[in-house]
Design a protein around this nucleic acid. Structure first.
Lengths: 185, 185
DNA sequence: ACAAGGAGCGTACGACCGTACGCTCCGAGT
DNA sequence: ACTCGGAGCGTACGGTCGTACGCTCCTTGT
């Protein structure tokens, strides 16, 4: 009944290394060996700590999506009025679509997996669910849903554009989605 | 100077097979051998017709994105008023996020590649550019840009949701983005 | 002090990969 | 009729992959 010595640290390091590698080379280019090398652990550790490649990927993306959602909730949680929430949303869009290659790439990798495999779709659903809950603190459910989609679309398009649209356009789109009928600009 | 006998057919079949395979198993699970088997061509054909895996992928996604944009332009081209355009956009969103697993998966695979490699980003940029041009026949540039992003977000979220939102929500989001200040519902 | 058992790893195996390369054989030029 | 060049393919090579499995050595209980 020996208890493992440095279990948690090892596992965490492996997951971090996996995410870094996926961000750089994609799920397609990720292998046990490369992850092990990057994490500085022996190859044997891979199959010891994780049931297989799939389990490693699932854990890695679980941690990734949790982290993203946490940032989202944190930003939105700090807002106490609808207007502050709108500003927070704009910040989020520009944060996600900024120079930050890593998060962008990982998000797409996750969506790609989710599009094909139900196990990963569960992750994205939880992500969306929590985003919407956070938005519903400031907006009605239908608006929250539309705004969540708008955030997604703006982030993706902005990240892929040659010359990213400026903040004014983001702010205007958010305003249009969230303003009530009859409110002028 | 023998002229090739059945060149074009072969190449096309290979590209089609590659797209089908990518849709099913992902770029990660795609190999020359599997594509060849599915296309019913010998393995040697792969390196003969294409300079390598990368060239095959690039051609496959070029054809895919062209096809998607064509559908987009066609739907929108048929609209002659802004209201018809709004309806066409709603149709598009529900078409893209419908049961159609194939297009959804391929789109995400392409975005994933685009997020990492400039060569593929060129494809998505051209896609976005043409979409916006099509939208600008009915809306001003800023609105077109926002609407394009909205379409993206709505399609993605709708496809990933457990119970996809109904058409009313899509229509409302489109209305909010495209209505002018002061227009009530 | 000693036994023992499990945490953790080194290594080897079989499968699959991309690609290079030499052969075949058909069509055209004479 | 005969040559010949290139389109097109079969095959084999070197490399990488995931994973199973047996060994080591530390920790704990006595």
């Amino acid at each position: 009944m020996a208890t493992g010595r440095n279990d948690p640290e090892r596992r965490e390091r492996i997951i971090t290394a996996a995410l870094d590698l996926i961000a750089e080379e994609g799920v397609a280019g990720t292998s046990h060996r490369k992850v092990a090398a990057r994490a500085g652990v022996p190859l044997g550790s891979m199959t010891y700590h994780f049931g297989g490649m799939e389990e490693l990927l699932r854990e890695a993306f679980t941690r990734f999506s949790s982290g993203i959602v946490a940032v989202f909730e944190e930003h939105l949680g700090a807002a106490s009025t609808a207007d502050e929430a709108r500003t927070a949303v704009a910040d989020l869009v520009h944060h996600l679509s900024g120079g930050n290659q890593r998060e962008l790439v990982l998000t797409h990798e996750l969506y790609t997996l989710a599009a094909r495999e139900p196990a990963y779709r569960e992750l994205t659903r939880e992500w969306m669910r929590r985003s919407r809950v956070a938005l519903e603190r400031h907006f009605d459910p239908a608006t929250a849903r539309q705004l969540d989609a708008m955030i997604e679309g703006l982030s993706i398009h902005r990240a892929l554009e040659t010359e990213p649209h400026d903040r004014a356009l983001t702010v205007e789109a958010i305003a249009r989605i969230t303003r009530r009928d009859g409110e002028g600009s």
